[in-house]
Amino acid sequence: HYTLTSRNFFLLLLKLCIEVFQVKEWNGNGTARWKTFRRQKREWIKFAAACREGEDNSKRNPIARIRSDCEENNPVTYSISGVGIDRAPYGIFVVNPRTGEINITSIVDREVTPVFVIRCFAKHSVTGMDLEPPLELRVRVLDINDNPPIFAQSVFTGSVEECSMDNTLVMKIIASDADEPNHLNSKIAFKIESQEPSGQPMFI
């Protein structure tokens, strides 16, 4: 007679999530034997597509999917948490608890959140016990050129002595762009629109 206690049930679940495999080994006299190994289950199966800011990404859903190998032997319920889920801004990402498919529901802004870090969980649907350690899934927000350059101040003042040589430094103007650093969208080009008094251009 055998009683299935909660501890035994947990151990049974744990065993179901372990892979058993055999390797043939040859000894010195040429005979072979099978050696059994146990190893921890493979990492979660996952993928995550990047999302473009300022656009409706829902047409690309699911933008991510998680799946545990424990699905083969256990009823699994998937859940997620993090910024954009159960922390403000709420509800940007939702997960199908049965399939592990993660959908995006609203437009995102890279300047607010450049990367969403989603913590993923796989629990036994009946007991609520964790079948996996939490998985960290990163969803990158792709930049678009939606920020104009801004000068560091409204007026820059410089000076130059009369009869100075060509290309004498007069002043340095500084501007910044809130788009992604080291990206084409944040590169800045300067040009002089006009000068007073007008006439032959005196500055470059």
Rank of each mutant, 00 (worst) to 15 (best):
L14F: 14
P62R: 02
E55V: 02
L184Q: 11
G158Q: 12
N61E: 05
I144M: 14
E71W: 03
K172L: 12
S198E: 11
T127M: 09
C120V: 06
F47E: 08
P62K: 01
V83P: 01
R39G: 09
V115P: 00
R138P: 00
V20R: 12
N145T: 04
R60H: 15
H183Y: 08
D177C: 12
V115W: 01
G28V: 14
I80A: 04
G199T: 07
I192Q: 04
P97D: 04
S186K: 11
E193V: 09
T77W: 00
T77Q: 07
C163W: 10
V20L: 10
L4V: 13
I150G: 05
F156H: 07
D146A: 04
F21V: 02
K46T: 07
R39Y: 10
R110Y: 05
I18D: 14
A64Q: 07
L4N: 13
V170H: 09
C70W: 04
Q200M: 13
S176F: 14
L131D: 06
P97T: 05
V108Y: 00
K41I: 06
D177P: 12
S154I: 08
F203H: 07
I188L: 06
C70A: 14
E162A: 13
S194V: 04
P114L: 06
S186Y: 11
I85T: 04
V141F: 01
I107C: 13
L137T: 01
M202P: 00
E19W: 10
D166E: 09
S186F: 08
T77L: 10
E196Q: 13
L4K: 14
Y2G: 08
I102R: 03
G91L: 02
E180H: 05
D179A: 10
S125F: 02
T77F: 01
C51S: 13
Q153F: 08
T77I: 09
H124R: 04
I104A: 01
V112R: 12
P197Y: 01
